[in-house]
């Protein structure tokens, strides 16, 4: 049963990546990215990373994808025009990405991943406690980075619509 669920999520991810790589329509690639992100959240659940899966759905699939669609909407030349993008240097890009993929596969073939059974820990509580004790500096810095990014993005977007 677990193997069946694993195979389903793997297949969904591969189909999504296949659509992104092969399509020329920008908005279809953003929809396929949403599919990839949600199926990755499913894979995180299979890896016993519950909080990460929920954060992935909330922020990535519910935030970044919407931002990208708004970006596509505001950079079209006219209404009713499907945004097509050609690709240059496909053969060179294919060679480079295949080389990197084979290198990584060779590196990973020697890795030993052991399965850890951690389903008895209350993960949300543990991660929350570790945010405020072990990783508190990173936590505060990220809050600051979020504030700066929010103010900066709002100001930049306002500048572009003011004239």
């Amino acid at each position: 049963m677990i193997q069946f669920i694993q195979i389903v999520f793997f297949l969904l991810t591969l189909i999504g990546v296949g659509v992104i790589v092969s399509t020329k329509n920008v908005i279809h690639s953003v929809y396929a990215l949403a599919l990839v992100l949600v199926s990755l959240a499913g894979i995180y659940v299979l890896l016993n990373a519950e909080l990460l899966a929920i954060v992935q759905i909330l922020l990535y699939a519910g935030g970044v994808v919407i931002l990208l669609v708004f970006g596509v909407m505001m950079t079209r030349r006219g209404s009713g025009e499907t945004l097509i993008s050609e690709s240059k240097n496909s053969i060179l890009a294919l060679i480079i990405s295949l080389a990197i993929f084979l290198l990584l596969v060779y590196l990973f073939s020697n890795a030993e991943v052991e399965a850890v059974n951690i389903s008895s820990i209350d993960q949300v509580k543990e991660i929350g406690v570790s945010f405020l004790t072990d990783h508190i500096v990173a936590f505060e810095l990220i809050a600051f980075v979020l504030l700066v990014a929010l103010v900066g993005a709002a100001y930049l977007a306002k500048m572009s619509s003011n004239e």
Binding site: F10, V17, K88, I96, F101, F108, A115
Partner: peptide, 28 residues
């Protein structure tokens, strides 16, 4: 629960990385 095919997750991660590099280099 992840005793089955553990290294396949690593191969999937490598595949995502390769596909991402392909898109960044070739699309305009």
């Amino acid at each position: 629960m992840s005793e089955l095919y553990p290294t396949y997750y690593l191969y999937l991660s490598a595949f995502l990385f390769g596909a991402g590099i392909f898109i960044v280099i070739s699309k305009r």
